[in-house]
Computed example of a mutant assay.
Amino acid sequence: MELIYFFLLHIFDLFQMDELWKNKIYAIHTIAAAGSVTFGTAVTYPLDTIKVLVQVGSGSSKQLTATQALERVRYISGYSGLFSGFGWFAFGRILGVGARFGTYEIVTAFYKDGRQHNYVYSSEALMAGMVAGAAESLISSPFELIKLRAQVTSASRVPSHFSMTKKRVVAPVIEKLLCGYGPDKNALNYAVGLLSTLTNKHPNMTGALQGYPWMMTGSGSPPSVCDVRRPSKILSLEGWSAMWRGLRPGLVRDSVYGGIFFSTWQFLHQAMLDWKAVGMDPIPSVNEDVDPLSPLAVSLSAGFSGSVAGAVSHFFDTAKCRSLCTVLPKFVSLERKLLKWKRPGSRFERFTGIHPADRNVLFNGIWLRMARCGVASFFMVGYYFLAVDQLVSRGSRLT
């Protein structure tokens, strides 16, 4: 009881104004970071929605353009459909970006330990950024799955099953495998028609076919993404492992993005410091003696770094998005494990999670992703500097 008393007393003291003012630097940076990530995500979210639709809606024979994707969203869901799934993605983005920058600072602290100058080489920033990107991928993967399926649903016609609920009789095993979903009657009748050449002695072949898991949708295909887009539906049909589907391309994408982003940003930051140091007399020997760079210059360098990193890692982003757009029931995953199913494609494709059928669509939406990553990085860094400056000045006036 004494331990609980002292713990509660410490929490009470922590929320007093004096303690808050002593620790204001942590609160200010936390609030500014969360606000900057949310603002940067909100500004670029329509670009992300169009990019995702172009990536998952294109095939090797037919390419979906950005204009067509925008018109489809506007026609089906209105302009509000461009922000479908924003809440999930913003929350996951705050956690993911926080993990990225936090992991980067921790790793680079080991590099700078014991050095006279607070300096990180671009190669070291590359390695630290790859580790930081992997940490971000592990945290943000579940939120990205829900976000992507919401975006796809905004551009898809969702059939109404409510009027046919009473007419559908589904086997109990199917109800457990796929909660709340009924088979497509037209597709099921078509499948029965294909079997009409065989000797039909079963009194109810349609009902019998519904008892087989691979015929649960009536077509032998998994359910549509529009039917399995909520967390409860995903967990009931696909299981917890679905939350980290596409982990291979996601890890490679975020690792490459983090490494290229931080190494390019470190290189540009050092180049701007060297350029500014040339005009000083005497020329400073360490970076700490150089006047701080303007927030606009830092934001522009971050935006350029984000665009370059987005272009380099775009192929893996396409593979990640297309894998998340596939519904994989639990019984199919179990069958693959039992049969020791091997991934198709070359060794590089198996390692990175790229499906061979996606080879011709890996470049789709690359300019949209470059724009989204660049603009998001620019606004995120710029808003962060602005928010910190405003919060610090306001806190000084209050004291």
Rank of each mutant, 00 (worst) to 15 (best):
L194C: 05
L177A: 15
G220D: 07
S196H: 12
P172L: 10
P213S: 08
A187C: 13
P172I: 09
P203E: 14
G211T: 15
P183H: 06
R245D: 13
S236L: 12
H202F: 04
G180R: 02
P223H: 07
L178I: 10
L235S: 03
R230C: 06
G246V: 13
Q210V: 03
T199P: 01
G239W: 10
L178E: 07
G182W: 05
P172N: 09
W240H: 02
C226R: 06
L235E: 03
G239C: 10
P223E: 09
L247K: 01
S196R: 14
T206A: 13
S241T: 15
V192L: 07
T199I: 08
M243E: 02
V225F: 10
A208M: 13
R230E: 15
L209V: 04
N204I: 03
M205W: 08
L177M: 15
L237T: 15
E175K: 13
A242C: 09
A191V: 07
P213D: 04
G220E: 05
V192Q: 01
L188I: 06
S232A: 14
Y212W: 10
W244I: 15
L177D: 07
S221E: 14
I174S: 01
P222S: 15
L198N: 03
Y212N: 05
K233D: 13
R248L: 10
I234P: 03
D227I: 02
K233V: 03
G220S: 05
V192R: 02
G193W: 03
I174L: 02
L194K: 12
V192D: 00
S221Q: 13
T206E: 15
W240D: 00
I234W: 01
L177F: 08
R229I: 12
P223N: 13
V192P: 00
A208R: 09
S196C: 04
G207N: 12
Y190W: 09
V192T: 06
K185Q: 11
Q210Y: 04
D227K: 03
L247P: 03
P183A: 11
G239V: 12
Y181K: 07
C226S: 15
K201D: 10
V228S: 00
E175F: 01
G220M: 06
K201Q: 07
P172S: 11
S241G: 14
E238K: 00
L177I: 10
K201M: 08
Y181H: 09
G220K: 05
G182A: 14
